[in-house]
Amino acid sequence: MDTNSEKVATFHNHYGAMMFKKRVSGSRLAPVPRSLSSSCGTAAFFSSPFDVELSDENLEAVYIKEGESYRMIYENKE
């Protein structure tokens, strides 16, 4: 499952996305894809494997790209 295909991490705030980018090399920031959320925050796109260790309180969820759609692989419970 957690291969090197594209993943998207969403956050509760922009700062969370910036901090995530620093932790995950090769990741890039862009607006959250509309199909994932009606909010307009910043998402981090990355292809390296995701590990729960990479999460923090600002992370909302992580999705993996499957064809043209996304599937949630991690959700940071409130």
Partner: peptide, 19 residues
């Protein structure tokens, strides 16, 4: 998600012109 503020913010913060 049309938003003028979000549009300029995205250009400044992540260099994205989508919004």
């Amino acid at each position: 998600r049309m938003c003028m503020v979000g549009g300029i913010r995205d250009v400044i913060l992540v260099k994205d012109w989508t919004l």
